[in-house]
Design a protein around this nucleic acid. Structure first.
Length: 344
DNA sequence: AATGATGCCAACCGCCAATCA
DNA sequence: ATGATTGGCGGTTGGCATCAT
């Protein structure tokens, strides 16, 4: 077993790839596509196992891979995505365009994990290891624990509801809406990835069926929330009606019909259109809004950070000067004054 | 300059789930 | 229904580069 088994034939080459091997693999795939990875090495004239070829392609040779230093925003994204998703690198990579899961995993293991550890945060749980009570850090990290608990609760619930949604489309609230798309058109079952909650204020993949013209597809991940080219990452402001809100102990998750959206990229509006008829949005409870959400709600309005990125999350507004929790915490991470561990 | 420690990252390994025959 | 095959994922390792002593 073990995928395209690399152990069965001892004559197969291992170790670093040479330029010649890269060129062979690249040339073959560009001409024929990869097809079956098992048979590819023979056809391409490579003394490698198919699995090795696949990894070399997905992690290194693919033309749509962005390499090099991670930007500050990417770094922030990895941290908060990890807080939401844990070590699900492919899921994280699905939300970082052009980055591979391997690269993100390496970056986390070699840098971000250590940085969090230095701050006294357990990188596995994003909770404080030991912290003096009453400190600003402790307060922040206690919210992190609440967020984590809410995440788990929501994830479990949404996993159940994702099954129901196929049987009970529209949550029994919208009898005039169309049935779910046929299997060949359907997106993956909604909300198994709880990150859609976070995404719902940021990108159109919040729609169960995404609108055209956007993509957050990872070069490696098969978790496909994408729908087109990946040149830009638009900010999308869905308008939601007929929402159901499901409160939990600390926050609430909502689900509503996506009436319309407009997308922005590179600082300007690139389109404005009706949402697909079967598009739905999952979103965190909007602080200050009535849970019944009688009218349309602009999700983009409730939570953006100073960089203009939507931050999402149920804890907005609990911090002074309007900064949301995640932004606050991420600023802690990147703050030079916190390079050393907190004073005990 | 030599050597050991540490950082970094490409690649490998083993497991799992989906698909196929 | 079942076993084999395949592709994908996350954890781990090997080896090179850089830093510290």
């Amino acid at each position: 077993m073990g995928g395209t088994n690399c152990n069965s034939k001892s004559e197969l080459k291992k170790g670093p790839w040479t330029r010649e091997e890269d060129q062979k693999l690249l040339a073959y795939i560009q001409e024929h596509g990869h097809g079956s990875w098992r048979t590819l090495p023979t056809k391409a004239g490579l003394q490698r196992c198919g699995k090795s070829c696949r990894l070399r392609w997905t992690n290194y040779l693919r033309p749509d891979i962005k390499r090099g230093k991670f930007s500050t925003h990417e770094e922030k994204s990895i941290i908060r995505l990890h807080a939401l998703l844990g070590n699900r690198w492919s899921a994280i990579a699905a939300h970082l365009p052009k980055r591979t899961d391997n690269e993100i995993k390496n970056y986390w293991n070699t840098r971000l994990k250590k940085r969090l550890t230095r701050m006294g945060i357990d990188p596995a749980t994003h909770k404080p290891k030991s912290n003096p009570a009453g400190s600003r850090h402790a307060a922040a990290l206690s919210h992190m624990a609440q967020w984590e608990a809410a995440r788990l609760e929501a994830e479990a619930r949404l996993a159940c509801e994702s099954k129901l949604l196929y049987k009970l489309p529209l949550l029994r609230r919208k009898p005039t809406s169309p049935p779910p798309p046929p299997p060949h058109l359907a997106a993956p079952p909604p909300c198994l990835d709880v990150l859609k909650v976070w995404q719902s204020t940021t990108i159109p993949s919040c729609f169960f069926r995404s609108p055209p013209g956007c993509s957050l597809e990872s070069p490696t991940s098969t978790l496909n929330f994408s729908c087109g080219n990946a040149h830009t990452v638009p900010t999308v402001s869905p308008m939601v009606t007929n929402a159901d809100v499901m409160p939990t102990n600390e926050c609430a998750w909502g689900m509503g019909r996506a009436e319309s959206y407009h997308a922005e990229a590179e600082g300007k509006t690139v389109n404005s259109q009706q949402a697909p008829p079967d598009a739905y949005v999952v979103f965190p409870e909007l602080p200050g809004y009535d849970c019944d959400l009688a009218g349309p709600v602009d999700l983009a309005a409730f939570n953006q950070d100073s960089d203009g990125y939507s931050m999402g999350g149920p804890l907005v507004g609990e911090f002074e000067d309007g900064k949301n929790y995640w932004n606050y915490l991420l600023n802690l991470v990147s703050s030079p004054m916190l390079e050393s561990p907190p004073v005990l």
